[in-house]
Design a protein around this nucleic acid. Structure first.
Lengths: 223, 223
DNA sequence: ACTAATTTTTAGGGTTGTCTAAAAATTAAT
DNA sequence: ATTAATTTTTAGACAACCCTAAAAATTAGT
C-alpha cells in the first residue's frame, strides 16, 4: 500500500477544495477537469483513487465532496502555497504576478518543520500577496467578507483588500493602473449602461470596467 | 517530444556527477543503482533515455560519462541543493543533519529567478552547511583541497573545513562531540595500531577513530 | 413524457519509471 | 585459456497518470 500522497493527488484535492468554496453542491467531474487542464475521463480515474483513500465522498455521476481528511490536506497545501508566495514577494523580490507558478511547485515540498519555520520566519502572515487569507496551522481560514468593488455605491470609499481573479494578465493590468492591495478608492460615478465606474485614488481619476470591479475585493469605510 | 526534464532524470544526472567526481573511469550501472536505491535494470533503462537526450555518453556494458550538457544540469541541481541548505540553516533554524532531505525536494523547483534571487538573498554563499562548495551561476566549483584530518601529523594544527560523509548519524556524532566547521583542532598523538588520534580543540581532549578522521576535510595551518 | 443534448463513465491504450528473472557480456581465478 | 563469478542488459510485467472513443446516465427542451 502506498502511504504517501503524490503531487497529482494533492493538486486534485486542492482543485476540489477551491471549487467547493464557490458553491455548495457536489463538485463535478467536468469542473475539475477544466481547472486542472485535463480530461474528464482522467478525473474519473483519480476520483476513484481519492475515494478509496477516503479523501472524497463520491457517488457515480453525482460528483464529489471532500471528506474532513481531504479538506485538511487541501488546506495544508493552500497554506504552504500562500506562505511561499509571501516569502517570494517579501524576500526574493518577486512581483505578485510571478509568484503563483513557483509556489505551485514549492507547495508540494514535504516537511512539517519547513512550513512551521517558514511561517515563523515570515512573522505569521495572515494574507498572501493577492489578499487571500493564509490558513493557520490548525486549518482555520480567516474569511474574506467578500464585498466586491462593483457593489460599492457612489461617493463611498473603500480599501482594496484582494483580487478574485489572480491571473497574470489581470495583475499586470492592476500594476499598470497603480492599483495595489491597500489602495484607498472612492467611487465617483457609475455608468448605468455598461456598469463601468469612475474611481478616484491617490489623486488619480480612472474609469474601470465591470470586469475589473467585479474582481476586486474591498473593505467599505464606515462613514 | 518531451522537452522538460523530470525529477528522476535530474536525480540520475546528479548521482552520476557525484560518482564521477570520486573516480575517472566511466560510472557503472551498479554504482548508480546503489546510490539511487534502485535496481541495475532500471538504471540501464534510464541511461538509454539520458543517452538519447545527449546528457551522457553510453557504451553498452561500459558505463557512462556525463556530456557537457549533462554536467551542466547536474551542477545546476547541486547549486540549488546547496543554496537551499544554506537557507534552511541560516534562516529557518534547521540543523546540518536535517537539511539534506528537504533540500532534495527543493532542488527540483524550476525557476531561474528563484535560484538567482535566493543566491543574492543569502549573500552569495560559497559553501553549504557541510562545507561543500556551492557552484556559481556559471557552474564553476571552488575545489576543496581535500586534505583529511587523518593525514595531519602530530603537533600540527588545522581547521575543520567540511565533512566527506554527511549522513545524519555522522553529523549527529560530530554535534555531540562539539566538532563544527571552523573548529580549530590540534593533533596530539596518533595510535599506530588502529590509526585513531588524540585531538585537542576548544580546550577539550578527545580520541577519535580513523573512521572519523578520514571523513573530515581540514585546512592545515602554516607554522 | 419523451427525445435531444450534455455529462460522466468505461474500455482500451500509451508513457514513465519501476521491478524480477533470465540471458549476455565482462572480469576474475585458477 | 577456460571456467567461474560478477556485472549488465533484455524481456516481460506492473503502477501511476494520462489519453481517445464509445457507452451509459443525467439533465434540458419541448
Amino acid at each position: 500500500m502506498n502511504t504517501q500522497i503524490s503531487q497529482t493527488e494533492e493538486n486534485y484535492l486542492k482543485a476540489i477544495f477551491r471549487l467547493s468554496l464557490s458553491q455548495n453542491k457536489a463538485v463535478s467531474t467536468n469542473s475539475i477537469a477544466e481547472k486542472l487542464n485535463t480530461k474528464a475521463s482522467s478525473v474519473t480515474d483519480m476520483i476513484k483513487k481519492l475515494s478509496d483513500k477516503k479523501w472524497v465522498d463520491y457517488v457515480k455521476y453525482q460528483g464529489v465532496f471532500l471528506t474532513l481528511a481531504g479538506k485538511k490536506i487541501a488546506i495544508r497545501i493552500l497554506r504552504k502555497h500562500r506562505l511561499w508566495e509571501v516569502f517570494l514577494v517579501k524576500h526574493l523580490d518577486f512581483t505578485w504576478d510571478e509568484v503563483h507558478e513557483v509556489a505551485e511547485q514549492l507547495e508540494h515540498v514535504k516537511s512539517e518543520k519547513l512550513t512551521q519555520q517558514l511561517d515563523a520566519y515570515l512573522e505569521y502572515p495572515t494574507h498572501d500577496p493577492h489578499g487571500d487569507p493564509i490558513p493557520d496551522e490548525d486549518g482555520n481560514i480567516a474569511h474574506h467578507k467578500e464585498i466586491m468593488l462593483s457593489a460599492i455605491s457612489c461617493n463611498e470609499k473603500c480599501t482594496i483588500m484582494g483580487v478574485k481573479d489572480s491571473s497574470v494578465a489581470f495583475l499586470k493590468y492592476l500594476d499598470s493602473s497603480g492599483i495595489q492591495l491597500g489602495t484607498l478608492v472612492e467611487v465617483v460615478k457609475k455608468e448605468a449602461f455598461d456598469q463601468s465606474m469612475h474611481i478616484l485614488f491617490e489623486g488619480k481619476k480612472r474609469n474601470i470596467s465591470q470586469q475589473i470591479s467585479k474582481n476586486l475585493f474591498v473593505k467599505k469605510h464606515r462613514l
